[in-house]
């Protein structure tokens, strides 16, 4: 794979992560028990959709075949999405959503930080902008994880279950494939092994603060980065793409 193709695949993958997570969060709009958290979630979801748009638009430019952001989002099939499996998991309860966000955003923030210093100026620019948004998300969501973990017996028990259930999807974030390796070497992208060490140290500190136990390292699920997904993504995409598939080119 040449470096241009690797960069295209990498940027498109960043778009997939942002879109799939953003869409999952949008499913929760109007479902929050408190108005203030409702607004926070909707703001955060739109941050992700905005990031997906920037990544897809850039991917379309890199590809040079006239595909636009909507073509990436609405006219690709499940196996063409290369998002992390963690992000397509159903929302579950509030503790599940918060846990998913903390596990991912701790990784994503470091990834963006590294990309903001990469040699591809356009990707660096997008990453720098997204980094500010995610820094705030992570602050907000980490506080919630600590509140739930260090809260009542029930909130502690339930969010510990969330951490245990989602842990198996965290390994994939740090599995470097050919695309990651080329982008690291050719563009100064992140080294996933370094990111993993930082992540482990940071998540350790957060879990201790939240009085939660770190799960034993066990079997890790992977495949999302290669287009092999859990059964949940297909349903989500079907709903997300329904309108463009039924009425191609519809605008309003």
């Amino acid at each position: 794979m040449n470096k241009e193709r690797a960069l295209l695949a990498y940027v498109s993958r960043l778009g997939d992560n942002a879109l799939v997570l953003g869409q999952r969060m949008i499913e929760l709009v109007a479902a929050y028990p408190e108005l203030e958290e409702e607004l926070a979630n909707a703001n955060f979801a739109l941050d992700y959709i905005g990031q997906a748009r920037m990544f897809y638009t850039y991917a379309g430019e890199l590809e040079g075949q006239g595909r636009r952001e909507d073509d990436f989002a609405f006219l690709r099939d499940e196996n063409e999405f290369r998002n992390l499996l963690l992000l397509e998991q159903p929302n579950g309860h509030f503790g599940d959503s918060i846990t998913k966000l903390v596990l991912f955003e701790l990784f994503y923030l470091a990834q963006l930080g590294s990309l903001a210093r990469s040699e591809d100026t356009q990707l660096a620019g997008i990453a720098a902008r997204a980094e500010k948004e995610i820094r705030y998300h992570l602050r907000h969501n980490t506080q919630w994880l600590v509140r739930l973990g260090d809260g009542t017996d029930e909130s502690h028990r339930r969010v510990q279950d969330s951490v245990n259930d989602l842990w198996r999807y965290t390994g994939e974030m740090f599995e470097a494939d050919e695309i990651d390796t080329i982008v690291e070497k050719a563009y100064g992208g992140p080294n996933l092994e370094e990111l993993r060490e930082r992540w482990l140290a940071d998540i350790d500190a957060i879990l201790i603060n939240a009085t939660l136990d770190k799960p034993e390292d066990g079997w890790m699920a992977s495949g999302g980065k290669a287009g092999r997904h859990t059964e949940h993504l297909g349903y989500m995409i079907a709903e997300m793409q329904y309108l463009q598939r039924t009425h191609p080119g519809a605008t309003w």
Partner: peptide, 20 residues
């Protein structure tokens, strides 16, 4: 005004509600 369970949550809620 906003509702929040603690001071930090109040600051976040204020940011998300009034400075969008």
């Amino acid at each position: 005004s906003i509702h929040a369970a603690d001071d930090q949550m109040a600051l976040d809620a204020a940011r998300d509600t009034y400075t969008r």
